[in-house]
Design a protein around this nucleic acid. Structure first.
Lengths: 337, 337
DNA sequence: GCGCTTTAGCGGAACGTTTAGCTAATCGTT
DNA sequence: AACGATTAGCTAAACGTTCCGCTAAAGCGC
């Protein structure tokens, strides 16, 4: 592979002049510029990003760590972030942790070794797990998306999970539902906690009692949610509505309903958090709370890039975006008993 | 950030010894090893991958270029490939081309600049577009997935698209359908061509005539497929079954059906290519041909890694995997007229 | 005690850039 | 004509590793 030295020799100039030509970093006379570009084409020269990174001290690489790219929320997030990063002249090193904290730690180490210029992280670990990263995060611009972590004072971009759960639960109550169950997310994640809190608060505000066995806690995964829904729906006094804390779990609930040959929304209403591209393709079209994924992605990228140069030392910013309720066909009005 | 020099100074050894310790590339006495590892911990030293890459001539980076990560087939593919690459000690540079050939070309240039050790590419361009890459591909291990390109003699991993379309069409015919339509993929992609050919051949073999206006060509995108399905279903002599050439398009068809207040499978049967996680969550559960995504991913990674060192000069391998028909509820038997 | 081999550990030259100096040539001013 | 000011383009020193080849000490047989 041709190097600057080869180009310089062929063009009869010094490598400094080649560098100046390639980077437009200094004036080069038209004549030399012509000879250099000619030589570049002749040799098929392309600058070596590795050497350049070593010298410049930055790699134009950004690490993107997500919990599970198979989750449509993250798929979309990766999609928009990749595009934005690319636009800004960086590239994305993708890391999928499979909701596994060990992996996440390994990835952070690897990203550090690759000397990425920044990291966008959708953390999967618990609060407390991250104490060890505090020193790391001082040097490495870090933006947390989707889930916040108190102990890292990094920039964060989240949605108002409390509001999301509150709104969707209120919708259920408005329709007359009183026997409302939830399949909640993991308690160690702020997103899981907030959604459960929003659910509880909505019920309290309306004075609707909550049977404790109507709160099932899950793992944001489909299988467990399906099992929980099966149990819920076959148990005594089954709920008239179920609130699933994310889209995977919502799918699990729908499968349980289908397996029991029940009808949604006639027999049971279902709501969930996270819209996804197929939510309105089937019957019933699903009522959900949509997170503003595109905004989250561009906000995260903007915050990250903002840490370059001067902005490096500003205090961390915590951006909280508003979700929106999307009413479709998976909830029915309850006729008063 | 601490460097080897700092570690060496603190441990009272040369940087060569630090290197030998870190890489286990030469014998280091227990005493020195202890002092070195101690210094490493004390300073929080982590090797600089950039400098290492420059010296070693390889980056442990693999470029992964997909047409559209939002397509569940590619989502899954990215998921399995990322895991396999990671396992092998490499990292993934993700590139999403949005089915845009210009972008794809840019990405290839960027990946080249980053000196990736190899590229896995799901190409979106037409045959002929890639002539310019022939020189590139000589030096850069390249594996094509999903879609083959005649002019690049790179390794390829594809599924038997002809068989997939043939099988699923035959299934429709077995159920008694005679008015069968297809919404085909782009003709410039081998996957699009082969699927259409399989569809046609199945009809021919059974002597079922095909009305030419029952062949709509699309772009592998949902909106256009929906428009085509709307037109197909509202036109005179509507088909009793529709074959969609990928999952996006299948969704488009389902939305059209839902919008027209028709019932699937009672009014119209639907089949598609590509299974996806939600295909069996709703009513009707969708009958599809499943591509062996996991096998495709691991095959691609294996082929790529195989090009390292000695295998560099072996002739290209073309691996063709078999799809499997997954029968669910979106197809009904047609009662004889 | 002398040569011989063995080997732990070190010095230093790369790898391909960027960039801070520097040189020498050109130019304007007096 | 002599002087400084300006500037196009060059030289060379980094950046942080890896690894070849060397030194010098140790081990060994005689």
């Amino acid at each position: 592979m041709a190097t600057m030295k080869d180009v310089a020799r062929l063009a009869g100039v010094s490598i400094a002049t080649v560098s100046a030509t390639v980077n437009r970093s200094a004036f080069v006379s038209p004549e030399l510029r012509r000879r250099v570009t000619e030589a570049i084409h002749e040799l098929g020269y392309a600058p070596d990003g590795v050497a350049r990174s070593l010298k410049r001290g930055r790699t134009q690489l950004v690490g993107l760590i997500v919990a599970d790219i198979t989750n449509p929320f993250f798929t979309e997030l990766v999609h928009v972030i990749e595009a934005a990063i690319q636009d800004a002249g960086y590239s994305v090193l993708l890391c999928d942790t499979d909701e596994n904290f060990e992996k996440e730690r390994d990835y952070l180490r690897i990203l550090r070794t690759h000397r990425v210029d920044g990291v966008i992280l959708a953390p999967t670990g618990q609060s407390g797990d991250y104490a060890q990263f505090q020193s790391l995060e001082e040097r490495l611009p870090l933006v947390l998306v989707d889930r916040a972590l108190a102990e890292l004072n990094a920039d964060t971009v989240t949605v108002d999970n409390f509001a999301a759960a509150f709104e969707v639960t209120a919708h259920l109550l408005d329709l007359g539902h009183r026997d409302v169950a939830t399949i909640a997310g993991p308690e160690h994640l702020t997103s899981g906690q907030e959604r459960l809190r929003g659910f509880r608060t909505a019920l309290e505000q309306q004075g609707v009692p909550l049977r404790e066995n109507f709160v099932r806690s899950g793992s944001f995964r489909e299988e467990e949610a399906m099992a929980a829904a099966l149990d819920l729906l076959q148990g005594p006094g089954r709920p008239s509505a179920i609130f699933a804390a994310n889209s995977h779990m919502m799918i699990g609930v729908m499968r349980a309903i289908s397996q029991l040959r029940l009808n949604c929304p006639k027999d049971v209403s279902v709501v969930g958090i996270d819209d996804f591209p197929w939510a309105n393709a089937f019957t019933p079209r699903l009522t959900v709370v949509r997170q503003p994924v595109a905004e989250m992605g561009s906000a995260a990228v903007k915050l990250l890039l903002d840490r370059r140069g001067d902005g490096a030392e500003r205090p961390p910013v915590h951006q909280v975006l508003k979700p929106t309720l999307v009413i479709r066909d998976s909830c029915a009005r309850v006729r008063p008993a």
